[in-house]
Design a protein around this nucleic acid. Structure first.
Lengths: 135, 135
DNA sequence: TATTGACCTTGTAGTGACTTTATGGTTTTT
DNA sequence: AAAAACCATAAAGTCACTACAAGGTCAATA
């Protein structure tokens, strides 16, 4: 199939496919006489794998690492688990940080609920205050 | 004070300060005869405000908007509140999404706890499976 | 037959918020 | 006097694309 069909099948834009190829995530397919790329099912599977990893929040570098395991399935899988564990703990940190920030923002927001002038509003002052207690 | 001192005071790198100046977030300071920037306390406060906004997750564009209120404090403050409300609801969405992803990753990770070969590990297969049920 | 439209090609630039690198001038310390 | 630390500017790199420009190819229509 050609690049447009593959794109539609997997739900990606054609540029993204070419981009993955240039990044070395998708093997360069054969070409027709006119230069058009022709893809096989294997390419589709590989592309779907990439997309799902991205949806899970993995970086292209991490995906690259996972692919090296796909390509050589007789390695021990500890490294895969380590990669996922890393990613999970990283995500947990991120979630915790976001929740803390949300709390701060909500309490900041609570410092003004009325129609006032900026001068009397308290929100900007609240931001400035906080900024000096950091680190 | 000079740029390095300001940087140390606020906990930023000097390049970041010059970057904020170029972006119009920090007013261009006076210069010494040799061209070195000289900063006042006002710059320090402004820079601290920017940093704290960044730590709260506000974009430079949002900070720019807030600064226009700082610079003209006799406007009504509804717009500030609206900006914060927007940002808070955006953050809540982000947190929910991250939590869902974490759950997926954890269950994926649970598909292999042992030392196996990649082939028998199940994690990569789990990623591939999931990828086709999306959209 | 000419041309329109949909598809394909390549390469380059833009996004956000910086960070890094290159190149060179100035000041301070040894 | 020389080395280290600081300052300046400008340009390129980061990440994961997205958008754009300029053109080649192909099938269907006027």
């Amino acid at each position: 199939m050609r690049i447009g069909q593959l794109a539609q099948l997997v739900g990606v834009e054609t540029q993204t496919i070419r981009f993955y190829e240039k990044q070395g995530l998708l093997p360069p397919p054969d070409r027709q006489e006119n230069g058009y790329r022709i893809y096989t099912e294997k390419h589709g599977e590989r592309l779907a794998f990439i997309r799902h990893c991205r949806i899970l929040g993995l970086s292209l570098a991490e995906i690259h690492e996972l692919q090296s395991f796909q390509d050589d399935p007789h390695q021990p899988c500890n490294a895969i688990n380590a990669l996922l564990d890393d990613h999970i703990s990283h995500m947990r940190l991120q979630i915790t940080a976001l929740q803390a920030l949300e709390k701060q923002l909500v309490s900041l927001r609570a410092s003004c609920n009325n129609d006032r002038e900026v001068e009397a509003c308290g929100v900007l002052a609240g931001i400035s205050e906080g900024s000096l207690h950091h680190q």
